[in-house]
Design a binder for these strands. Structure first.
Lengths: 252, 252
DNA sequence: TCCCGGATAAAGTCATACGATAGAAACGGG
DNA sequence: CCCGTTTCTATCGTATGACTTTATCCGGGA
Protein backbone atom coordinates (compact mmCIF):
# COMPACT_ATOMS: atom_id res chain seq x y z
CA UNK A 1 0.00 0.00 0.00
CA UNK A 2 1.51 3.27 -1.01
CA UNK A 3 0.72 6.74 -2.18
CA UNK A 4 -2.50 6.67 -0.28
CA UNK A 5 -3.15 10.37 -0.35
CA UNK A 6 -3.29 12.31 -3.56
CA UNK A 7 -2.12 15.40 -1.80
CA UNK A 8 1.55 16.03 -2.22
CA UNK A 9 3.02 14.35 0.80
CA UNK A 10 6.34 14.81 2.40
CA UNK A 11 9.15 14.62 -0.08
CA UNK A 12 10.65 11.14 0.15
CA UNK A 13 13.86 12.29 -1.47
CA UNK A 14 14.88 14.43 1.48
CA UNK A 15 16.76 12.60 4.12
CA UNK A 16 14.73 13.99 6.99
CA UNK A 17 11.64 12.80 5.16
CA UNK A 18 12.89 9.25 5.04
CA UNK A 19 13.69 9.33 8.71
CA UNK A 20 10.31 10.82 9.55
CA UNK A 21 8.62 8.18 7.48
CA UNK A 22 10.50 5.38 9.16
CA UNK A 23 9.76 6.68 12.62
CA UNK A 24 6.13 7.38 11.81
CA UNK A 25 5.45 3.90 10.50
CA UNK A 26 7.14 2.42 13.52
CA UNK A 27 5.00 4.54 15.82
CA UNK A 28 1.70 4.07 14.06
CA UNK A 29 2.15 0.36 13.57
CA UNK A 30 2.56 0.09 17.30
CA UNK A 31 6.12 -1.18 17.15
CA UNK A 32 7.01 1.79 19.33
CA UNK A 33 4.56 1.92 22.20
CA UNK A 34 3.41 5.08 23.90
CA UNK A 35 6.36 5.74 26.12
CA UNK A 36 9.99 6.12 25.48
CA UNK A 37 10.56 6.10 21.77
CA UNK A 38 14.11 6.93 20.93
CA UNK A 39 16.44 5.55 23.56
CA UNK A 40 18.29 8.73 22.78
CA UNK A 41 19.29 10.77 19.81
CA UNK A 42 22.76 9.28 19.58
CA UNK A 43 21.56 5.68 19.44
CA UNK A 44 19.24 6.44 16.58
CA UNK A 45 21.91 8.37 14.85
CA UNK A 46 24.20 5.37 14.88
CA UNK A 47 21.43 2.91 14.07
CA UNK A 48 20.43 4.56 10.84
CA UNK A 49 23.64 6.49 10.38
CA UNK A 50 22.14 9.85 9.81
CA UNK A 51 23.29 13.18 11.09
CA UNK A 52 21.74 14.68 14.12
CA UNK A 53 20.43 17.56 12.03
CA UNK A 54 18.35 15.35 9.79
CA UNK A 55 17.11 13.31 12.70
CA UNK A 56 16.04 16.36 14.66
CA UNK A 57 14.23 17.84 11.70
CA UNK A 58 12.33 14.61 11.31
CA UNK A 59 11.34 14.75 14.95
CA UNK A 60 10.15 18.32 14.59
CA UNK A 61 8.12 17.29 11.58
CA UNK A 62 6.45 14.54 13.56
CA UNK A 63 6.00 16.83 16.54
CA UNK A 64 3.94 19.09 14.33
CA UNK A 65 1.62 16.19 13.64
CA UNK A 66 1.32 15.28 17.28
CA UNK A 67 3.00 11.92 16.95
CA UNK A 68 5.86 12.54 19.34
CA UNK A 69 6.68 14.77 22.26
CA UNK A 70 10.29 15.70 22.92
CA UNK A 71 11.11 16.97 26.36
CA UNK A 72 14.58 17.80 27.60
CA UNK A 73 16.12 15.32 29.94
CA UNK A 74 13.20 12.89 29.91
CA UNK A 75 13.57 11.94 26.27
CA UNK A 76 11.55 11.93 23.09
CA UNK A 77 8.41 9.93 23.58
CA UNK A 78 5.63 8.61 21.42
CA UNK A 79 2.65 10.82 22.15
CA UNK A 80 -0.63 9.24 23.30
CA UNK A 81 -2.76 8.34 20.32
CA UNK A 82 -5.46 10.87 21.07
CA UNK A 83 -3.09 13.69 20.41
CA UNK A 84 -2.25 12.47 16.92
CA UNK A 85 -3.64 14.45 14.02
CA UNK A 86 -5.42 11.53 12.46
CA UNK A 87 -6.82 13.71 9.71
CA UNK A 88 -3.44 14.90 8.55
CA UNK A 89 -2.76 13.56 5.06
CA UNK A 90 0.65 12.20 6.00
CA UNK A 91 -0.63 10.56 9.14
CA UNK A 92 -3.42 8.93 7.16
CA UNK A 93 -0.98 7.66 4.57
CA UNK A 94 1.26 6.25 7.26
CA UNK A 95 -1.70 4.57 8.87
CA UNK A 96 -2.61 2.74 5.76
CA UNK A 97 0.96 1.74 5.29
CA UNK A 98 1.40 0.45 8.77
CA UNK A 99 -1.85 -0.53 10.29
CA UNK A 100 -4.65 -2.09 8.26
CA UNK A 101 -6.93 -1.76 11.22
CA UNK A 102 -10.57 -2.54 10.68
CA UNK A 103 -11.79 -0.30 13.47
CA UNK A 104 -9.95 2.61 11.92
CA UNK A 105 -11.56 2.02 8.55
CA UNK A 106 -14.97 1.81 10.15
CA UNK A 107 -14.34 5.07 11.96
CA UNK A 108 -13.28 6.78 8.78
CA UNK A 109 -16.36 5.55 6.98
CA UNK A 110 -18.45 6.88 9.82
CA UNK A 111 -16.83 10.24 9.36
CA UNK A 112 -17.47 10.08 5.64
CA UNK A 113 -21.07 9.32 6.30
CA UNK A 114 -21.39 12.44 8.41
CA UNK A 115 -19.47 14.76 6.19
CA UNK A 116 -19.80 13.77 2.56
CA UNK A 117 -23.57 14.07 2.20
CA UNK A 118 -23.41 17.56 3.64
CA UNK A 119 -20.53 18.39 1.36
CA UNK A 120 -22.54 17.15 -1.60
CA UNK A 121 -25.44 19.34 -0.54
CA UNK A 122 -23.24 22.42 -0.42
CA UNK A 123 -21.63 21.50 -3.69
CA UNK A 124 -25.02 21.25 -5.35
CA UNK A 125 -25.95 24.66 -4.03
CA UNK A 126 -22.74 26.50 -4.71
CA UNK A 127 -21.06 24.80 -7.63
CA UNK A 128 -19.86 26.89 -10.53
CA UNK A 129 -19.92 25.56 -14.06
CA UNK A 130 -16.21 24.80 -13.78
CA UNK A 131 -16.84 22.82 -10.59
CA UNK A 132 -19.50 20.80 -12.34
CA UNK A 133 -17.28 20.22 -15.33
CA UNK A 134 -14.54 18.94 -13.08
CA UNK A 135 -16.86 16.55 -11.28
CA UNK A 136 -18.36 15.37 -14.55
CA UNK A 137 -14.91 14.84 -16.04
CA UNK A 138 -13.93 12.74 -13.05
CA UNK A 139 -17.06 10.66 -13.42
CA UNK A 140 -16.32 10.15 -17.08
CA UNK A 141 -12.82 9.05 -16.11
CA UNK A 142 -14.38 6.32 -14.01
CA UNK A 143 -16.45 5.04 -16.88
CA UNK A 144 -13.90 4.97 -19.67
CA UNK A 145 -11.20 3.10 -17.78
CA UNK A 146 -11.23 -0.53 -16.73
CA UNK A 147 -12.62 -1.23 -13.26
CA UNK A 148 -10.15 -0.90 -10.40
CA UNK A 149 -7.38 0.21 -12.74
CA UNK A 150 -5.17 3.00 -11.51
CA UNK A 151 -6.75 5.71 -13.69
CA UNK A 152 -10.16 4.66 -12.48
CA UNK A 153 -9.10 4.95 -8.87
CA UNK A 154 -7.62 8.35 -9.52
CA UNK A 155 -10.83 9.44 -11.21
CA UNK A 156 -12.85 8.19 -8.26
CA UNK A 157 -10.72 10.20 -5.86
CA UNK A 158 -10.93 13.24 -8.11
CA UNK A 159 -14.71 12.91 -8.12
CA UNK A 160 -14.97 13.16 -4.39
CA UNK A 161 -12.28 15.78 -4.10
CA UNK A 162 -13.95 18.00 -6.68
CA UNK A 163 -17.14 17.88 -4.69
CA UNK A 164 -15.31 19.11 -1.64
CA UNK A 165 -13.76 21.86 -3.69
CA UNK A 166 -17.15 22.96 -4.91
CA UNK A 167 -18.30 23.58 -1.34
CA UNK A 168 -16.05 26.65 -1.18
CA UNK A 169 -15.43 25.86 2.43
CA UNK A 170 -11.69 25.49 3.06
CA UNK A 171 -11.92 23.88 6.49
CA UNK A 172 -14.37 21.37 5.10
CA UNK A 173 -12.05 20.74 2.17
CA UNK A 174 -9.41 19.67 4.65
CA UNK A 175 -11.45 16.52 5.18
CA UNK A 176 -11.05 15.53 1.56
CA UNK A 177 -7.76 13.73 2.15
CA UNK A 178 -9.42 11.61 4.81
CA UNK A 179 -12.22 10.71 2.45
CA UNK A 180 -9.82 9.94 -0.36
CA UNK A 181 -7.70 7.78 1.88
CA UNK A 182 -10.77 5.82 2.91
CA UNK A 183 -11.82 5.30 -0.67
CA UNK A 184 -8.39 4.25 -1.75
CA UNK A 185 -8.18 1.79 1.08
CA UNK A 186 -11.53 0.25 0.32
CA UNK A 187 -10.67 -0.02 -3.36
CA UNK A 188 -7.40 -1.63 -2.45
CA UNK A 189 -9.25 -4.28 -0.51
CA UNK A 190 -11.61 -5.18 -3.30
CA UNK A 191 -11.09 -8.09 -5.53
CA UNK A 192 -10.26 -6.58 -8.91
CA UNK A 193 -12.91 -8.71 -10.57
CA UNK A 194 -15.77 -7.64 -8.38
CA UNK A 195 -17.64 -6.12 -11.27
CA UNK A 196 -20.99 -6.20 -9.60
CA UNK A 197 -20.04 -3.69 -6.99
CA UNK A 198 -18.21 -1.60 -9.50
CA UNK A 199 -21.19 -1.04 -11.76
CA UNK A 200 -23.40 -0.40 -8.76
CA UNK A 201 -20.91 2.16 -7.53
CA UNK A 202 -20.83 3.76 -10.93
CA UNK A 203 -24.57 4.21 -10.83
CA UNK A 204 -24.31 5.74 -7.37
CA UNK A 205 -21.76 8.21 -8.63
CA UNK A 206 -23.83 9.12 -11.65
CA UNK A 207 -26.86 9.81 -9.50
CA UNK A 208 -24.84 12.13 -7.28
CA UNK A 209 -23.46 13.93 -10.28
CA UNK A 210 -26.93 14.31 -11.65
CA UNK A 211 -28.26 15.83 -8.43
CA UNK A 212 -25.37 18.26 -8.23
CA UNK A 213 -25.93 19.18 -11.82
CA UNK A 214 -29.58 19.95 -11.00
CA UNK A 215 -28.47 22.04 -8.03
CA UNK A 216 -30.71 19.93 -5.84
CA UNK A 217 -28.96 19.95 -2.49
CA UNK A 218 -31.22 17.57 -0.60
CA UNK A 219 -31.16 15.08 -3.42
CA UNK A 220 -27.38 15.28 -3.69
CA UNK A 221 -27.04 14.69 0.03
CA UNK A 222 -29.39 11.73 -0.02
CA UNK A 223 -27.67 10.14 -2.99
CA UNK A 224 -24.22 10.71 -1.59
CA UNK A 225 -25.41 9.12 1.60
CA UNK A 226 -26.49 6.10 -0.40
CA UNK A 227 -23.17 5.97 -2.19
CA UNK A 228 -21.21 5.97 1.03
CA UNK A 229 -23.43 3.37 2.61
CA UNK A 230 -23.09 1.08 -0.39
CA UNK A 231 -19.36 1.49 -0.31
CA UNK A 232 -19.29 0.84 3.40
CA UNK A 233 -21.35 -2.31 3.13
CA UNK A 234 -19.23 -3.63 0.34
CA UNK A 235 -16.06 -2.89 2.25
CA UNK A 236 -17.36 -4.47 5.42
CA UNK A 237 -18.21 -7.59 3.45
CA UNK A 238 -14.67 -7.71 2.17
CA UNK A 239 -13.26 -7.20 5.62
CA UNK A 240 -15.45 -9.98 6.94
CA UNK A 241 -14.22 -12.23 4.15
CA UNK A 242 -10.66 -11.39 5.01
CA UNK A 243 -11.23 -12.05 8.67
CA UNK A 244 -12.69 -15.50 8.02
CA UNK A 245 -9.86 -16.22 5.62
CA UNK A 246 -7.35 -15.31 8.28
CA UNK A 247 -9.23 -17.35 10.83
CA UNK A 248 -9.25 -20.42 8.62
CA UNK A 249 -5.63 -20.03 7.66
CA UNK A 250 -4.74 -19.56 11.31
CA UNK A 251 -6.66 -22.70 12.11
CA UNK A 252 -4.50 -24.74 9.73
CA UNK B 1 -6.69 36.37 21.34
CA UNK B 2 -4.62 33.62 22.73
CA UNK B 3 -4.66 30.04 23.86
CA UNK B 4 -7.44 29.27 21.45
CA UNK B 5 -7.07 25.53 21.53
CA UNK B 6 -7.26 23.60 24.72
CA UNK B 7 -5.00 20.94 23.33
CA UNK B 8 -1.43 21.37 24.36
CA UNK B 9 0.01 23.38 21.58
CA UNK B 10 3.56 23.86 20.59
CA UNK B 11 5.72 24.77 23.53
CA UNK B 12 6.31 28.50 23.37
CA UNK B 13 9.36 28.22 25.55
CA UNK B 14 11.36 26.46 22.86
CA UNK B 15 13.10 28.78 20.52
CA UNK B 16 12.07 26.98 17.39
CA UNK B 17 8.50 27.24 18.61
CA UNK B 18 8.73 31.00 18.88
CA UNK B 19 10.14 31.21 15.39
CA UNK B 20 7.46 28.91 14.02
CA UNK B 21 4.80 30.98 15.72
CA UNK B 22 6.16 34.21 14.31
CA UNK B 23 6.37 32.83 10.80
CA UNK B 24 2.96 31.20 11.01
CA UNK B 25 1.19 34.34 12.10
CA UNK B 26 2.91 36.27 9.37
CA UNK B 27 1.82 33.72 6.81
CA UNK B 28 -1.73 33.29 7.98
CA UNK B 29 -2.35 36.98 8.45
CA UNK B 30 -1.38 37.41 4.83
CA UNK B 31 1.66 39.54 5.56
CA UNK B 32 3.65 36.97 3.62
CA UNK B 33 1.87 36.28 0.38
CA UNK B 34 1.88 32.98 -1.43
CA UNK B 35 5.23 33.11 -3.09
CA UNK B 36 8.68 33.61 -1.82
CA UNK B 37 8.53 33.59 1.94
CA UNK B 38 11.93 33.91 3.43
CA UNK B 39 14.13 36.13 1.35
CA UNK B 40 16.61 33.54 2.45
CA UNK B 41 17.55 31.70 5.55
CA UNK B 42 20.36 34.04 6.46
CA UNK B 43 18.24 37.17 6.36
CA UNK B 44 15.75 35.70 8.76
CA UNK B 45 18.53 34.47 10.90
CA UNK B 46 19.93 37.94 11.29
CA UNK B 47 16.55 39.60 11.62
CA UNK B 48 15.54 37.62 14.64
CA UNK B 49 19.04 36.57 15.57
CA UNK B 50 18.48 32.88 15.81
CA UNK B 51 20.66 30.06 14.67
CA UNK B 52 20.03 28.29 11.42
CA UNK B 53 19.23 25.11 13.31
CA UNK B 54 16.33 26.64 15.19
CA UNK B 55 15.09 28.36 12.09
CA UNK B 56 15.18 25.20 10.02
CA UNK B 57 13.39 23.20 12.67
CA UNK B 58 10.66 25.82 12.71
CA UNK B 59 10.36 25.51 8.96
CA UNK B 60 10.08 21.74 9.20
CA UNK B 61 7.40 22.14 11.81
CA UNK B 62 5.40 24.40 9.52
CA UNK B 63 6.08 22.14 6.57
CA UNK B 64 4.34 19.37 8.45
CA UNK B 65 1.27 21.56 8.69
CA UNK B 66 1.35 22.43 5.02
CA UNK B 67 2.00 26.12 5.56
CA UNK B 68 5.28 26.29 3.69
CA UNK B 69 7.09 24.36 1.02
CA UNK B 70 10.86 24.31 1.11
CA UNK B 71 11.97 23.28 -2.31
CA UNK B 72 15.54 22.15 -2.78
CA UNK B 73 17.29 25.18 -4.13
CA UNK B 74 14.77 27.70 -5.24
CA UNK B 75 13.77 28.86 -1.80
CA UNK B 76 11.22 28.35 0.92
CA UNK B 77 7.82 29.52 -0.16
CA UNK B 78 4.46 30.06 1.46
CA UNK B 79 2.29 27.21 0.31
CA UNK B 80 -1.03 27.91 -1.38
CA UNK B 81 -3.80 28.19 1.16
CA UNK B 82 -5.60 25.07 0.05
CA UNK B 83 -2.73 22.91 1.14
CA UNK B 84 -2.83 24.22 4.70
CA UNK B 85 -4.10 21.91 7.38
CA UNK B 86 -6.82 24.22 8.57
CA UNK B 87 -8.04 21.69 11.10
CA UNK B 88 -4.71 21.39 12.82
CA UNK B 89 -5.00 22.77 16.35
CA UNK B 90 -1.97 24.98 15.96
CA UNK B 91 -3.08 26.31 12.62
CA UNK B 92 -6.48 27.10 14.06
CA UNK B 93 -4.94 28.92 16.98
CA UNK B 94 -2.72 30.93 14.67
CA UNK B 95 -5.71 31.81 12.55
CA UNK B 96 -7.59 33.29 15.42
CA UNK B 97 -4.53 35.18 16.46
CA UNK B 98 -3.86 36.61 13.07
CA UNK B 99 -6.95 36.74 11.00
CA UNK B 100 -10.37 37.50 12.49
CA UNK B 101 -11.93 36.62 9.20
CA UNK B 102 -15.70 36.41 9.10
CA UNK B 103 -15.78 33.98 6.21
CA UNK B 104 -13.54 31.62 8.10
CA UNK B 105 -15.79 31.72 11.15
CA UNK B 106 -18.81 31.05 8.99
CA UNK B 107 -17.07 28.11 7.38
CA UNK B 108 -16.15 26.67 10.74
CA UNK B 109 -19.71 27.01 11.97
CA UNK B 110 -20.85 25.25 8.83
CA UNK B 111 -18.50 22.42 9.64
CA UNK B 112 -19.78 22.32 13.20
CA UNK B 113 -23.29 22.11 11.91
CA UNK B 114 -22.41 19.07 9.85
CA UNK B 115 -20.37 17.28 12.43
CA UNK B 116 -21.54 18.06 15.91
CA UNK B 117 -25.10 16.77 15.64
CA UNK B 118 -23.78 13.48 14.33
CA UNK B 119 -21.24 13.40 17.09
CA UNK B 120 -23.96 14.00 19.63
CA UNK B 121 -25.96 11.13 18.15
CA UNK B 122 -23.04 8.76 18.47
CA UNK B 123 -22.31 10.00 21.96
CA UNK B 124 -25.88 9.30 22.99
CA UNK B 125 -25.64 5.80 21.61
CA UNK B 126 -22.22 4.86 22.87
CA UNK B 127 -21.58 6.87 25.99
CA UNK B 128 -20.39 5.11 29.10
CA UNK B 129 -21.39 6.29 32.53
CA UNK B 130 -18.06 8.01 32.86
CA UNK B 131 -18.61 9.83 29.58
CA UNK B 132 -21.97 11.04 30.80
CA UNK B 133 -20.53 12.10 34.12
CA UNK B 134 -17.89 14.11 32.34
CA UNK B 135 -20.40 15.85 30.11
CA UNK B 136 -22.70 16.52 33.04
CA UNK B 137 -19.82 17.91 35.08
CA UNK B 138 -18.93 20.25 32.25
CA UNK B 139 -22.51 21.43 32.05
CA UNK B 140 -22.55 22.02 35.77
CA UNK B 141 -19.37 24.03 35.37
CA UNK B 142 -21.22 26.31 32.98
CA UNK B 143 -24.02 26.93 35.43
CA UNK B 144 -22.08 27.61 38.61
CA UNK B 145 -19.68 30.16 37.16
CA UNK B 146 -20.48 33.69 36.04
CA UNK B 147 -21.39 34.06 32.37
CA UNK B 148 -18.48 34.44 29.99
CA UNK B 149 -15.94 34.06 32.77
CA UNK B 150 -12.91 31.98 32.00
CA UNK B 151 -14.05 28.89 33.95
CA UNK B 152 -17.37 29.05 32.15
CA UNK B 153 -15.67 29.13 28.77
CA UNK B 154 -13.48 26.22 29.76
CA UNK B 155 -16.53 24.28 30.90
CA UNK B 156 -18.27 25.02 27.62
CA UNK B 157 -15.31 23.70 25.68
CA UNK B 158 -15.09 20.68 27.93
CA UNK B 159 -18.76 19.99 27.31
CA UNK B 160 -18.30 19.76 23.58
CA UNK B 161 -15.00 17.97 23.80
CA UNK B 162 -16.45 15.32 26.11
CA UNK B 163 -19.17 14.64 23.60
CA UNK B 164 -16.58 14.00 20.94
CA UNK B 165 -14.74 11.72 23.29
CA UNK B 166 -17.87 9.73 23.94
CA UNK B 167 -18.18 8.92 20.24
CA UNK B 168 -15.22 6.52 20.53
CA UNK B 169 -14.23 7.55 17.06
CA UNK B 170 -10.67 8.90 17.09
CA UNK B 171 -10.72 10.48 13.63
CA UNK B 172 -13.95 12.22 14.52
CA UNK B 173 -12.41 13.38 17.77
CA UNK B 174 -9.77 15.16 15.76
CA UNK B 175 -12.45 17.66 14.83
CA UNK B 176 -12.96 18.63 18.45
CA UNK B 177 -10.21 21.26 18.36
CA UNK B 178 -11.88 22.93 15.42
CA UNK B 179 -15.19 23.00 17.24
CA UNK B 180 -13.59 24.31 20.41
CA UNK B 181 -11.77 27.01 18.51
CA UNK B 182 -15.02 28.11 16.93
CA UNK B 183 -16.77 28.26 20.26
CA UNK B 184 -13.97 30.16 21.87
CA UNK B 185 -13.95 32.64 19.06
CA UNK B 186 -17.67 33.24 19.22
CA UNK B 187 -17.55 33.63 22.98
CA UNK B 188 -14.71 36.06 22.59
CA UNK B 189 -16.85 38.18 20.31
CA UNK B 190 -19.78 38.35 22.64
CA UNK B 191 -20.43 41.25 24.89
CA UNK B 192 -19.83 39.93 28.38
CA UNK B 193 -23.18 41.24 29.53
CA UNK B 194 -25.24 39.49 26.89
CA UNK B 195 -27.13 37.47 29.44
CA UNK B 196 -30.03 36.72 27.22
CA UNK B 197 -28.02 34.61 24.87
CA UNK B 198 -26.15 33.02 27.71
CA UNK B 199 -29.22 31.66 29.44
CA UNK B 200 -30.64 30.51 26.12
CA UNK B 201 -27.38 28.73 25.39
CA UNK B 202 -27.47 27.15 28.80
CA UNK B 203 -30.89 25.72 28.08
CA UNK B 204 -29.65 24.39 24.75
CA UNK B 205 -26.78 22.65 26.47
CA UNK B 206 -29.03 21.18 29.11
CA UNK B 207 -31.34 19.75 26.49
CA UNK B 208 -28.44 18.10 24.69
CA UNK B 209 -27.16 16.67 27.93
CA UNK B 210 -30.60 15.35 28.70
CA UNK B 211 -30.90 13.61 25.34
CA UNK B 212 -27.49 12.02 25.70
CA UNK B 213 -28.39 10.92 29.17
CA UNK B 214 -31.51 9.23 27.76
CA UNK B 215 -29.40 7.58 25.07
CA UNK B 216 -31.70 9.07 22.48
CA UNK B 217 -29.47 9.59 19.46
CA UNK B 218 -31.93 11.34 17.18
CA UNK B 219 -33.00 13.67 19.91
CA UNK B 220 -29.43 14.48 20.82
CA UNK B 221 -28.61 15.23 17.19
CA UNK B 222 -31.62 17.47 16.77
CA UNK B 223 -30.93 19.36 19.94
CA UNK B 224 -27.25 19.77 19.18
CA UNK B 225 -28.26 21.06 15.81
CA UNK B 226 -30.43 23.63 17.51
CA UNK B 227 -27.63 24.58 19.83
CA UNK B 228 -25.20 25.19 17.00
CA UNK B 229 -27.73 27.15 15.00
CA UNK B 230 -28.53 29.36 17.97
CA UNK B 231 -24.88 29.96 18.53
CA UNK B 232 -24.34 30.69 14.86
CA UNK B 233 -27.19 33.18 14.70
CA UNK B 234 -26.01 34.94 17.79
CA UNK B 235 -22.47 35.11 16.46
CA UNK B 236 -23.59 36.38 13.09
CA UNK B 237 -25.57 39.09 14.81
CA UNK B 238 -22.45 40.12 16.66
CA UNK B 239 -20.39 40.08 13.50
CA UNK B 240 -23.01 42.21 11.75
CA UNK B 241 -22.93 44.63 14.66
CA UNK B 242 -19.18 44.80 14.44
CA UNK B 243 -19.31 45.37 10.72
CA UNK B 244 -21.75 48.26 11.03
CA UNK B 245 -19.65 49.66 13.85
CA UNK B 246 -16.60 49.55 11.68
CA UNK B 247 -18.53 51.04 8.81
CA UNK B 248 -19.81 53.90 10.91
CA UNK B 249 -16.45 54.53 12.50
CA UNK B 250 -14.89 54.45 9.06
CA UNK B 251 -17.48 56.96 7.91
CA UNK B 252 -16.46 59.41 10.62
C1' DT C 1 10.17 12.00 57.27
C1' DC C 2 10.49 15.82 54.37
C1' DC C 3 12.77 19.38 51.85
C1' DC C 4 16.50 21.18 49.26
C1' DG C 5 20.34 21.34 46.15
C1' DG C 6 23.73 19.42 43.24
C1' DA C 7 24.88 15.73 39.75
C1' DT C 8 23.47 14.12 35.46
C1' DA C 9 21.50 13.00 31.11
C1' DA C 10 19.02 14.32 27.35
C1' DA C 11 17.27 17.66 24.28
C1' DG C 12 18.04 22.51 22.68
C1' DT C 13 20.98 25.89 20.50
C1' DC C 14 24.87 27.62 18.07
C1' DA C 15 28.66 28.10 14.65
C1' DT C 16 30.88 26.32 10.81
C1' DA C 17 31.81 23.74 6.83
C1' DC C 18 30.94 21.42 2.58
C1' DG C 19 28.00 19.54 -1.15
C1' DA C 20 24.48 19.70 -4.65
C1' DT C 21 21.61 21.96 -7.70
C1' DA C 22 17.95 25.17 -9.47
C1' DG C 23 17.81 29.31 -11.64
C1' DA C 24 19.80 33.34 -13.43
C1' DA C 25 23.17 35.71 -15.83
C1' DA C 26 26.72 35.84 -19.09
C1' DC C 27 28.29 34.22 -23.32
C1' DG C 28 28.69 32.72 -27.98
C1' DG C 29 26.84 30.88 -32.34
C1' DG C 30 23.42 31.34 -35.84
C1' DC D 1 18.78 40.28 -32.88
C1' DC D 2 17.38 35.81 -31.10
C1' DC D 3 18.14 31.62 -28.87
C1' DG D 4 20.72 27.77 -26.99
C1' DT D 5 24.67 26.72 -23.98
C1' DT D 6 27.75 27.44 -20.36
C1' DT D 7 29.10 29.27 -16.20
C1' DC D 8 28.18 31.12 -11.78
C1' DT D 9 25.92 32.21 -7.75
C1' DA D 10 22.48 31.86 -4.42
C1' DT D 11 20.11 28.67 -1.44
C1' DC D 12 18.84 24.61 0.62
C1' DG D 13 20.48 19.93 2.47
C1' DT D 14 23.55 17.54 5.38
C1' DA D 15 27.26 16.81 8.69
C1' DT D 16 29.91 17.77 12.96
C1' DG D 17 31.43 19.36 17.44
C1' DA D 18 30.85 22.35 21.17
C1' DC D 19 28.22 24.52 24.46
C1' DT D 20 23.56 25.67 27.01
C1' DT D 21 19.29 24.70 29.14
C1' DT D 22 16.21 21.94 31.54
C1' DA D 23 14.16 18.43 34.13
C1' DT D 24 14.84 14.25 36.66
C1' DC D 25 17.04 11.76 40.18
C1' DC D 26 19.40 11.04 44.22
C1' DG D 27 21.63 11.98 48.33
C1' DG D 28 22.46 14.89 52.33
C1' DG D 29 20.81 17.79 55.93
C1' DA D 30 17.09 19.72 58.94
Amino acid sequence: MRDTSRARMLSPDRLFGQVAHKLAVSIISGASRTGELLPNEDDIRSEISVSRTAYREAVKFLTGKGLVEARPKSGTRVAPRDSWNLLDPDVLAWHFEADPNEKFIRDLFELRLFVEPSAARLAAQRRSEEDLAKIAAAYRGMTVNPPYAEPTVQADLAFHESIFEATRNPPLQCLAPAVCATIQWSLFLKAPDDRFFFTASLVDHERVLDAISQRDGDLAAARMSGLVIDSLNSTLRLLAGRASENASSARD
